[in-house]
């Protein structure tokens, strides 16, 4: 149940810090890459005990966000990226600058989450499932943070730290709906992978729904 909440929260993650201005809606579709990387192969060479199981696939997703000059979050936001079945869940999490992300270990083995990404370098060390408080990191610089595990080489996760409160993850077909937006001229961006971000200028009007696709 806890996991389901986690996934659903990350999938429809929309922030609306100023609901008085948040009236416009933009929706559309991002053309996602057709071919995706195969799921990773776990190296089990020197593990005496290995469980069976096929690691989950990771269909490509995109993050659509409204770029602009917005006030920073006034409330302290906490999100979670769990380690479950030797994978990050969710594998991609967009957050606003200043967000604290907790990394609960839901496996019955150690994990050691770290990142050497310029936007955030950290190493949480080895920690157990019952570790309290849950190891966490505050993401205070915009950019892409690649999560890895020092024990399980195959594990990869991404946190996209944004300086906007208006973002959403597409579904697997690329569809998105971003609501509660302020009216005005902005740039709408679609982050597809670390090398591909598409953008379009948009004019949002109060009470109107704008249809925009990223071909």
């Amino acid at each position: 149940m806890h996991l389901r909440v986690l996934v659903s929260v990350s999938a429809i993650c929309i922030f609306a810090p100023n609901s008085g201005l948040a009236e416009a809606i933009v929706e559309g579709r991002v053309n996602l890459p057709k071919s995706h990387a195969p799921p990773p192969v776990m190296a089990k060479r020197y593990e005496i005990v290995t469980n069976g199981g096929v690691l989950a696939t990771k269909p490509p997703l995109a993050v659509v966000y409204l770029d602009g000059s917005f006030p920073t979050a006034t409330s302290h936001s906490i999100k979670q990226v769990a380690q479950k079945d030797l994978a990050f869940l969710p594998p991609l999490l967009p957050v606003q600058i200043g967000t604290t992300v907790e990394f609960p270990n839901l496996d019955d083995t150690y994990h050691n989450i770290f990142s050497y990404s310029p936007a955030k370098r950290f190493d949480l060390g080895r920690y157990r499932p019952e570790e309290r408080p849950i190891p966490s990191v505050v993401f205070d610089v915009a950019g892409l943070v690649t999560l890895r595990c020092d024990i399980h080489e195959h594990m990869r996760g991404l946190i996209l730290v944004l300086n906007t409160p208006y973002f959403v993850i597409t579904d697997e077909s690329g569809r998105f709906r971003l609501s509660g937006l302020p009216a005005g001229h902005y740039t709408l961006k679609a982050w597809i992978d670390s090398k591909t971000t598409r953008e379009q200028p948009v004019e949002l009007k109060s009470g109107a729904t704008l249809r925009t696709d990223f071909p």
Partner: peptide, 13 residues
């Protein structure tokens, strides 16, 4: 290194 996973039960390295 070559690691190969075949289904959930067979692993070769």
């Amino acid at each position: 290194f070559l690691d190969a996973q075949m289904g959930s039960q067979i692993y070769f390295f």
